[in-house]
Amino acid sequence: MRESKLWFWHILSAVVILVFLGIHMGIMHLDAILWALGIGSGDPVRSADVFRRSRQLFFMVTYVILLGSALFHGLYGFRSMLWELSLPRAVEKAVGGACALAGFALFIYGSYVAVAVFRMGR
């Protein structure tokens, strides 16, 4: 049951997004509180601080996981929406294939950027 597996990962990616997007939102919007607690990572949008964070292993891994989860979750949902339009079977397959290809390409490109920035200046 291929669809059951896809749906399982769809739900799991939602949980992953919840956690990692929570971290992202915390860093972006709760910087003053995090700073007061001694776990701040600098100014959320200052270029130097953004680069400093991106060169840390934790953030690089976070970005890749968040990217993969968001791509899978979003594109699976997008495919489901299109499949509800009573399309011919061949078009459904083409839509599924296009979503998979787009997701894979965007994941490779996004991961490359995250890893490249992580390695910058090493």
Partner: peptide, 12 residues
């Protein structure tokens, strides 16, 4: 289950 859990089954 082949029908219930198909791409046009419960997940839609």
């Amino acid at each position: 289950e082949a029908e219930i859990f198909s791409e046009h089954g419960v997940y839609r």
